[in-house]
Protein backbone atom coordinates (compact mmCIF):
# COMPACT_ATOMS: atom_id res chain seq x y z
CA UNK A 1 0.00 0.00 0.00
CA UNK A 2 2.82 2.38 0.83
CA UNK A 3 4.41 1.78 -2.56
CA UNK A 4 1.13 2.51 -4.33
CA UNK A 5 0.63 5.67 -2.27
CA UNK A 6 4.14 6.74 -3.19
CA UNK A 7 3.40 6.10 -6.85
CA UNK A 8 0.25 8.22 -6.64
CA UNK A 9 2.11 11.09 -4.97
CA UNK A 10 4.92 10.86 -7.51
CA UNK A 11 2.44 10.88 -10.37
CA UNK A 12 0.54 13.87 -9.00
CA UNK A 13 3.78 15.77 -8.39
CA UNK A 14 4.99 15.06 -11.91
CA UNK A 15 1.65 16.17 -13.33
CA UNK A 16 1.67 19.31 -11.22
CA UNK A 17 4.83 20.36 -13.03
CA UNK A 18 3.24 20.01 -16.47
CA UNK A 19 1.80 23.54 -16.67
CA UNK A 20 5.23 24.98 -15.82
CA UNK A 21 7.41 22.72 -17.92
CA UNK A 22 5.28 22.16 -21.01
CA UNK A 23 5.41 25.27 -23.13
CA UNK A 24 2.87 24.38 -25.76
CA UNK A 25 -0.73 25.21 -25.00
CA UNK A 26 -1.77 22.29 -27.19
CA UNK A 27 0.05 19.65 -25.12
CA UNK A 28 -1.07 21.14 -21.81
CA UNK A 29 -4.63 20.82 -23.07
CA UNK A 30 -3.91 17.32 -24.23
CA UNK A 31 -2.76 16.21 -20.79
CA UNK A 32 -5.76 17.95 -19.24
CA UNK A 33 -8.26 16.08 -21.39
CA UNK A 34 -6.43 12.81 -20.79
CA UNK A 35 -6.82 13.45 -17.06
CA UNK A 36 -10.50 14.22 -17.56
CA UNK A 37 -11.11 10.88 -19.28
CA UNK A 38 -9.00 9.16 -16.63
CA UNK A 39 -11.44 10.50 -14.03
CA UNK A 40 -14.44 9.09 -15.92
CA UNK A 41 -12.58 5.83 -16.43
CA UNK A 42 -11.71 5.62 -12.74
CA UNK A 43 -15.37 6.16 -11.89
CA UNK A 44 -16.38 3.34 -14.22
CA UNK A 45 -13.55 1.18 -12.87
CA UNK A 46 -14.98 1.19 -9.34
CA UNK A 47 -18.23 -0.37 -10.50
CA UNK A 48 -17.04 -2.26 -13.58
CA UNK A 49 -13.47 -3.14 -12.75
CA UNK A 50 -13.70 -3.94 -9.04
CA UNK A 51 -17.40 -4.78 -8.90
CA UNK A 52 -17.69 -6.60 -12.22
CA UNK A 53 -20.88 -4.72 -13.14
CA UNK A 54 -20.46 -3.44 -16.70
CA UNK A 55 -22.26 -0.17 -17.21
CA UNK A 56 -22.93 1.09 -20.73
CA UNK A 57 -24.59 4.22 -19.48
CA UNK A 58 -22.17 6.24 -17.36
CA UNK A 59 -23.38 9.24 -19.33
CA UNK A 60 -26.45 9.09 -17.05
CA UNK A 61 -24.21 10.11 -14.13
CA UNK A 62 -21.92 12.39 -16.07
CA UNK A 63 -24.85 14.24 -17.61
CA UNK A 64 -26.71 14.57 -14.33
CA UNK A 65 -23.65 16.08 -12.68
CA UNK A 66 -23.13 18.44 -15.59
CA UNK A 67 -26.76 19.56 -15.76
CA UNK A 68 -27.09 19.86 -11.99
CA UNK A 69 -24.13 22.16 -11.73
CA UNK A 70 -25.11 24.20 -14.80
CA UNK A 71 -28.78 24.53 -13.87
CA UNK A 72 -28.05 25.54 -10.28
CA UNK A 73 -25.58 28.11 -11.58
CA UNK A 74 -27.62 29.52 -14.48
CA UNK A 75 -31.16 29.41 -13.12
CA UNK A 76 -30.62 29.79 -9.37
CA UNK A 77 -27.37 31.73 -9.22
CA UNK A 78 -25.66 29.15 -7.05
CA UNK A 79 -21.89 29.41 -6.96
CA UNK A 80 -20.29 26.58 -8.99
CA UNK A 81 -18.11 25.56 -6.05
CA UNK A 82 -21.24 24.97 -3.99
CA UNK A 83 -22.98 23.35 -6.95
CA UNK A 84 -20.05 20.95 -7.30
CA UNK A 85 -20.81 18.72 -4.30
CA UNK A 86 -24.51 18.99 -5.15
CA UNK A 87 -23.74 17.72 -8.64
CA UNK A 88 -21.74 14.83 -7.23
CA UNK A 89 -24.57 13.98 -4.86
CA UNK A 90 -27.24 14.21 -7.56
CA UNK A 91 -25.24 11.89 -9.81
CA UNK A 92 -24.68 9.55 -6.87
CA UNK A 93 -28.42 9.54 -6.23
CA UNK A 94 -29.15 8.66 -9.85
CA UNK A 95 -26.62 5.85 -9.43
CA UNK A 96 -28.33 4.67 -6.27
CA UNK A 97 -31.72 4.79 -7.99
CA UNK A 98 -30.59 2.78 -11.03
CA UNK A 99 -28.68 0.42 -8.76
CA UNK A 100 -31.61 -0.03 -6.40
CA UNK A 101 -33.96 -0.95 -9.23
CA UNK A 102 -31.63 -3.20 -11.15
CA UNK A 103 -29.77 -4.95 -8.33
CA UNK A 104 -32.95 -5.51 -6.36
CA UNK A 105 -34.21 -7.58 -9.27
CA UNK A 106 -30.89 -9.32 -9.64
CA UNK A 107 -29.93 -8.00 -13.07
CA UNK A 108 -26.48 -9.13 -14.08
CA UNK A 109 -24.14 -9.03 -17.04
CA UNK A 110 -25.68 -7.98 -20.35
CA UNK A 111 -29.00 -7.17 -18.70
CA UNK A 112 -27.44 -4.69 -16.31
CA UNK A 113 -25.45 -3.17 -19.16
CA UNK A 114 -28.60 -2.68 -21.22
CA UNK A 115 -30.61 -1.17 -18.37
CA UNK A 116 -27.92 1.47 -17.77
CA UNK A 117 -27.91 2.21 -21.49
CA UNK A 118 -31.68 2.61 -21.41
CA UNK A 119 -31.59 4.96 -18.41
CA UNK A 120 -29.07 7.21 -20.11
CA UNK A 121 -31.31 7.25 -23.16
CA UNK A 122 -34.42 8.10 -21.10
CA UNK A 123 -32.54 10.98 -19.47
CA UNK A 124 -31.38 12.19 -22.89
CA UNK A 125 -34.95 12.25 -24.18
CA UNK A 126 -36.14 14.00 -21.01
CA UNK A 127 -33.37 16.60 -21.27
CA UNK A 128 -34.54 17.15 -24.83
CA UNK A 129 -38.08 17.96 -23.73
CA UNK A 130 -38.09 19.74 -20.36
CA UNK A 131 -37.51 23.51 -20.52
CA UNK A 132 -35.08 23.75 -17.59
CA UNK A 133 -32.28 22.11 -19.60
CA UNK A 134 -32.82 24.43 -22.52
CA UNK A 135 -34.11 21.44 -24.53
CA UNK A 136 -32.25 20.63 -27.74
CA UNK A 137 -30.85 24.15 -28.02
CA UNK A 138 -28.64 23.55 -25.02
CA UNK A 139 -27.64 25.49 -21.97
CA UNK A 140 -25.11 28.28 -22.16
CA UNK A 141 -23.24 29.12 -18.95
CA UNK A 142 -22.46 32.86 -18.89
CA UNK A 143 -18.78 33.69 -19.12
CA UNK A 144 -17.62 35.30 -15.89
CA UNK A 145 -13.93 34.54 -15.36
CA UNK A 146 -12.65 34.35 -11.82
CA UNK A 147 -11.48 31.56 -9.56
CA UNK A 148 -14.49 32.26 -7.34
CA UNK A 149 -16.70 31.16 -10.22
CA UNK A 150 -14.69 28.07 -11.09
CA UNK A 151 -13.82 29.75 -14.37
CA UNK A 152 -10.15 30.28 -14.95
CA UNK A 153 -8.96 32.87 -17.43
CA UNK A 154 -5.72 30.99 -17.98
CA UNK A 155 -6.22 27.26 -18.31
CA UNK A 156 -3.80 26.36 -15.49
CA UNK A 157 -6.63 26.56 -12.97
CA UNK A 158 -8.63 24.00 -14.91
CA UNK A 159 -5.57 21.82 -15.08
CA UNK A 160 -5.06 21.76 -11.33
CA UNK A 161 -8.75 21.26 -10.71
CA UNK A 162 -8.92 18.10 -12.85
CA UNK A 163 -5.61 16.94 -11.35
CA UNK A 164 -7.17 17.30 -7.89
CA UNK A 165 -10.20 15.26 -8.99
CA UNK A 166 -7.98 12.55 -10.45
CA UNK A 167 -5.93 12.54 -7.23
CA UNK A 168 -9.14 12.16 -5.24
CA UNK A 169 -10.26 9.29 -7.48
CA UNK A 170 -6.88 7.55 -7.16
CA UNK A 171 -6.87 7.85 -3.37
CA UNK A 172 -10.45 6.62 -3.23
CA UNK A 173 -9.51 3.62 -5.36
CA UNK A 174 -6.45 2.96 -3.22
CA UNK A 175 -8.65 3.00 -0.13
CA UNK A 176 -11.06 0.68 -1.93
CA UNK A 177 -8.31 -1.83 -2.69
CA UNK A 178 -7.41 -2.07 0.98
CA UNK A 179 -10.77 -1.72 2.69
CA UNK A 180 -13.26 -4.34 3.77
CA UNK A 181 -15.76 -2.78 1.39
CA UNK A 182 -13.36 -3.27 -1.51
CA UNK A 183 -12.76 -6.87 -0.51
CA UNK A 184 -16.50 -7.50 -0.44
CA UNK A 185 -16.87 -5.83 -3.84
CA UNK A 186 -14.18 -8.00 -5.42
CA UNK A 187 -15.78 -11.06 -3.81
CA UNK A 188 -19.08 -10.13 -5.47
CA UNK A 189 -17.30 -9.75 -8.81
CA UNK A 190 -15.58 -13.10 -8.56
CA UNK A 191 -18.56 -15.13 -7.44
CA UNK A 192 -21.78 -13.58 -6.27
CA UNK A 193 -23.25 -16.73 -4.76
CA UNK A 194 -20.09 -17.63 -2.91
CA UNK A 195 -19.86 -14.09 -1.57
CA UNK A 196 -23.43 -14.28 -0.34
CA UNK A 197 -22.73 -17.60 1.32
CA UNK A 198 -19.86 -15.97 3.19
CA UNK A 199 -22.21 -13.37 4.56
CA UNK A 200 -21.55 -10.50 2.17
CA UNK A 201 -24.60 -8.32 1.65
CA UNK A 202 -24.36 -8.44 -2.14
CA UNK A 203 -27.13 -5.94 -2.78
CA UNK A 204 -25.78 -3.26 -0.48
CA UNK A 205 -22.23 -3.73 -1.69
CA UNK A 206 -23.21 -3.24 -5.32
CA UNK A 207 -25.45 -0.34 -4.40
CA UNK A 208 -22.61 1.43 -2.60
CA UNK A 209 -20.31 0.83 -5.57
CA UNK A 210 -22.70 2.28 -8.14
CA UNK A 211 -23.43 5.29 -5.91
CA UNK A 212 -19.73 6.01 -5.48
CA UNK A 213 -19.05 5.46 -9.15
CA UNK A 214 -21.94 7.71 -10.14
CA UNK A 215 -20.86 10.50 -7.80
CA UNK A 216 -17.34 10.48 -9.21
CA UNK A 217 -18.65 10.62 -12.78
CA UNK A 218 -20.93 13.48 -11.66
CA UNK A 219 -17.90 15.48 -10.53
CA UNK A 220 -16.51 14.93 -14.01
CA UNK A 221 -19.73 16.27 -15.48
CA UNK A 222 -19.63 19.35 -13.29
CA UNK A 223 -16.04 19.99 -14.38
CA UNK A 224 -16.97 19.56 -18.03
CA UNK A 225 -19.78 22.10 -17.74
CA UNK A 226 -17.50 24.73 -16.23
CA UNK A 227 -14.73 24.04 -18.72
CA UNK A 228 -16.76 24.25 -21.93
CA UNK A 229 -19.56 26.47 -20.58
CA UNK A 230 -22.06 24.72 -22.84
CA UNK A 231 -24.23 21.62 -22.54
CA UNK A 232 -26.80 19.92 -24.71
CA UNK A 233 -28.62 16.61 -24.27
CA UNK A 234 -26.42 14.85 -26.81
CA UNK A 235 -23.20 15.88 -25.10
CA UNK A 236 -24.44 15.20 -21.59
CA UNK A 237 -26.38 11.96 -22.05
CA UNK A 238 -25.22 10.75 -25.48
CA UNK A 239 -23.41 7.43 -25.90
CA UNK A 240 -19.99 9.00 -26.58
CA UNK A 241 -19.26 9.61 -22.89
CA UNK A 242 -20.53 6.17 -21.86
CA UNK A 243 -18.26 4.56 -24.43
CA UNK A 244 -15.19 6.57 -23.38
CA UNK A 245 -15.83 5.79 -19.74
CA UNK A 246 -15.74 2.07 -20.39
CA UNK A 247 -13.02 2.01 -23.06
CA UNK A 248 -10.49 3.78 -20.86
CA UNK A 249 -10.35 1.25 -18.00
CA UNK A 250 -10.85 -1.81 -20.23
CA UNK A 251 -7.96 -0.81 -22.46
CA UNK A 252 -5.83 0.19 -19.51
CA UNK A 253 -6.64 -2.73 -17.26
CA UNK A 254 -9.85 -3.29 -15.33
CA UNK A 255 -9.82 -3.51 -11.58
CA UNK A 256 -6.38 -1.98 -11.26
CA UNK A 257 -5.40 1.26 -9.57
CA UNK A 258 -3.49 2.78 -12.49
CA UNK A 259 -5.27 1.02 -15.36
CA UNK A 260 -7.69 3.86 -16.19
CA UNK A 261 -4.87 6.40 -16.10
CA UNK A 262 -2.80 4.29 -18.49
CA UNK A 263 -5.77 3.62 -20.73
CA UNK A 264 -6.76 7.24 -20.89
CA UNK A 265 -3.30 8.45 -21.90
CA UNK A 266 -2.95 5.60 -24.41
CA UNK A 267 -6.36 6.10 -26.03
CA UNK A 268 -5.99 9.84 -26.05
CA UNK A 269 -2.54 9.43 -27.59
CA UNK A 270 -3.90 7.08 -30.22
CA UNK A 271 -6.68 9.46 -31.15
CA UNK A 272 -4.20 12.35 -31.37
CA UNK A 273 -1.96 10.19 -33.56
CA UNK A 274 -4.89 9.43 -35.81
CA UNK A 275 -5.68 13.13 -36.07
CA UNK A 276 -2.07 13.90 -36.95
CA UNK A 277 -2.06 11.20 -39.61
CA UNK A 278 -5.14 12.43 -41.43
CA UNK A 279 -5.42 16.03 -40.41
CA UNK A 280 -8.57 17.62 -41.68
CA UNK A 281 -10.16 14.57 -43.31
CA UNK A 282 -13.17 14.33 -41.04
CA UNK A 283 -13.99 10.74 -40.19
CA UNK A 284 -10.73 9.12 -41.27
CA UNK A 285 -8.99 9.90 -37.98
CA UNK A 286 -11.79 8.26 -35.99
CA UNK A 287 -11.78 5.28 -38.35
CA UNK A 288 -8.07 4.83 -37.69
CA UNK A 289 -8.81 5.13 -33.97
CA UNK A 290 -11.22 2.23 -34.34
CA UNK A 291 -8.62 0.16 -36.19
CA UNK A 292 -6.02 0.85 -33.51
CA UNK A 293 -8.54 -0.09 -30.83
CA UNK A 294 -9.10 -3.48 -32.48
CA UNK A 295 -5.34 -3.99 -32.84
CA UNK A 296 -4.79 -3.07 -29.20
CA UNK A 297 -7.31 -5.68 -28.10
CA UNK A 298 -5.79 -8.20 -30.49
CA UNK A 299 -2.26 -7.84 -29.19
CA UNK A 300 -2.84 -6.84 -25.56
CA UNK A 301 -5.82 -8.88 -24.39
CA UNK A 302 -5.10 -8.17 -20.71
CA UNK A 303 -5.09 -4.42 -21.07
CA UNK A 304 -2.01 -2.23 -20.99
CA UNK A 305 -1.52 -2.68 -17.28
CA UNK A 306 -1.73 -6.45 -17.56
CA UNK A 307 0.75 -6.44 -20.40
CA UNK A 308 3.12 -4.19 -18.51
CA UNK A 309 3.00 -6.48 -15.53
CA UNK A 310 3.63 -9.64 -17.55
CA UNK A 311 6.51 -8.09 -19.45
CA UNK A 312 8.02 -6.76 -16.27
CA UNK A 313 7.69 -10.11 -14.55
CA UNK A 314 9.37 -11.79 -17.50
CA UNK A 315 12.17 -9.27 -17.59
CA UNK A 316 12.82 -9.74 -13.89
CA UNK A 317 13.09 -13.46 -14.51
CA UNK A 318 10.07 -14.33 -12.44
CA UNK A 319 8.76 -16.43 -15.30
CA UNK A 320 5.22 -16.17 -13.96
CA UNK A 321 2.74 -16.38 -16.79
CA UNK A 322 -0.37 -14.31 -16.34
Amino acid sequence: MRRQLLAIVAFLAAMALVPHLVGSEFWRNWVMMALFYALLGQAWNILGGYGGQFSFGHAAFFGTGAYCSAILHVHYGVNPWIALPAAGMAAGLVGAFIGFLSFRYGLRGSYFALVTLAFAEVLRILANTVPITGKGVGLLIPLDPGAANMQFADRTGYFYLILAFVGLALLLTLWLEHSRFGARLVAVRENEDAARALGVDVFRTKLAAITLSGALAGLGGSYYAQLFLYLDPGIAYGPAISVEALLVPIVGGMGTLFGPLLGSFALHGVSELAKLAFGEAAGLDLALYGVLLVLMVMFMPNGLFGMGRTTLARLLGGGRDA
Binding site: L284, L286, A287, Y289, G290
Partner: peptide
Protein backbone atom coordinates in the same frame (compact mmCIF):
# COMPACT_ATOMS: atom_id res chain seq x y z
CA UNK B 1 -15.25 -8.00 -22.77
CA UNK B 2 -12.79 -8.14 -25.65
CA UNK B 3 -15.49 -9.17 -28.12
CA UNK B 4 -17.42 -6.15 -26.93
CA UNK B 5 -14.45 -3.86 -27.54
CA UNK B 6 -13.79 -5.36 -30.96
CA UNK B 7 -17.37 -4.97 -32.17
CA UNK B 8 -17.30 -1.42 -30.80
CA UNK B 9 -14.05 -0.77 -32.69
CA UNK B 10 -15.50 -2.25 -35.89
CA UNK B 11 -18.56 -0.02 -35.62
CA UNK B 12 -16.38 3.06 -35.09
CA UNK B 13 -14.42 2.18 -38.22
CA UNK B 14 -17.45 1.53 -40.43
CA UNK B 15 -19.33 4.58 -39.25
CA UNK B 16 -16.48 7.01 -39.69
CA UNK B 17 -15.46 5.64 -43.06
CA UNK B 18 -19.05 6.23 -44.12
CA UNK B 19 -18.81 9.73 -42.77
CA UNK B 20 -15.61 10.30 -44.71
Amino acid sequence: ENILLVTLGVSIVIENLARY
